[in-house]
């Protein structure tokens, strides 16, 4: 019974919205809004053919490389900067300024410096997505429990072990919060960098559809981008549950006590 209710709760509103969409496009054919059936048809027509290989695949590849690089650079530099007080004091104002620059304005700059190839798009993604991870790692390392740090020092833990068993786990909740922000920024920058100067990719394809007034195709592109966003956040939630399982368990015990 409870399962049925949960299931109804999950699908009721989407079904109602779909029904409204279906009914409202039933009568006259609007130029801007395709009917649900037409959209589903175009979606499969447009994105399952060779376009998937030529546009979606390179976009996703760049997105993945960008995200992985941001995570590696962000955590690495963050551990380094967070561990030394003088380094943190030295770099913090500069980093705050770089983070405050809206990442899309870096696209023209990087286009000048690197060109318009794949490197440009990946660097744009990294330069935009690295800040939340970097700053959250610094903050996580900084706010580490001093008793734990003292204890591990007293027990003679060496540098590598203390990074692996003390600093990384205690900063992990903050780091994951940073990665969550970075994912959405990375996706946005992937699209924008392709809209700017490109001959292939999802962003390019969608703008192309819009310029040639291929409205159902454009909508199908928007839906595809939405799906990618949803899938990314779903994967992230799985990863977070796996990596931070111990942390959520600890929180639950603390709150129950």
């Amino acid at each position: 019974m409870t399962y049925i209710r949960t299931f109804l709760n999950i699908i009721a509103l989407p079904l109602i919205l779909l029904a409204i969409w279906f009914v409202s496009t039933l009568g006259e054919t609007s130029f801007f809004v395709p009917t649900p059936q037409a959209l589903v048809e175009t979606f499969f027509e447009t994105w399952t053919s060779e376009r998937f290989v030529s546009d979606v695949f390179p976009s996703l590849g760049r997105l993945m490389i960008g995200i992985v690089l941001s995570i590696l650079i962000g955590i690495g530099a963050g551990l380094l900067i967070g561990s030394f007080r003088w380094l943190r004091a030295l770099l913090e104002p500069t980093l705050e300024f770089f983070r405050a620059i809206p990442p899309p304005v870096l696209i023209p700059v990087i286009m000048l410096l690197i060109g318009i190839g794949d490197e440009m798009k990946v660097s744009v993604i990294v330069l935009g997505a690295v800040w939340p991870i970097l700053l959250n790692t610094i903050e996580g390392v900084r706010s580490m429990d001093e008793v734990l740090a003292d204890t591990s020092r007293t027990y003679g833990m060496n540098k590598i072990n203390s990074v692996r068993y003390l600093i990384l786990p205690s900063a992990m909740p903050q780091i994951m919060a940073g990665i969550r922000q970075s994912l959405s920024i990375a996706l946005i920058l992937m699209v924008i960098s392709e809209m700017f100067a490109s001959t292939e990719g999802l962003g390019f394809a969608i703008v192309q559809f819009q310029r040639s007034f291929a409205i159902p195709e454009m909508w199908s592109g928007i839906v595809l981008l939405g799906l990618i966003g949803v899938i990314l956040s779903f994967i992230f939630q799985l990863a977070e549950r796996w990596i931070l399982g111990w942390y959520h368990g600890l929180r639950e015990i603390e709150q129950a006590a």
Partner: peptide, 15 residues
């Protein structure tokens, strides 16, 4: 709806 990137709406906004 939350993770749908807002820039996906750019073409729609232009139209």
């Amino acid at each position: 709806l939350r993770p749908v990137p807002s820039v996906a709406l750019i073409p729609l906004a232009v139209l």
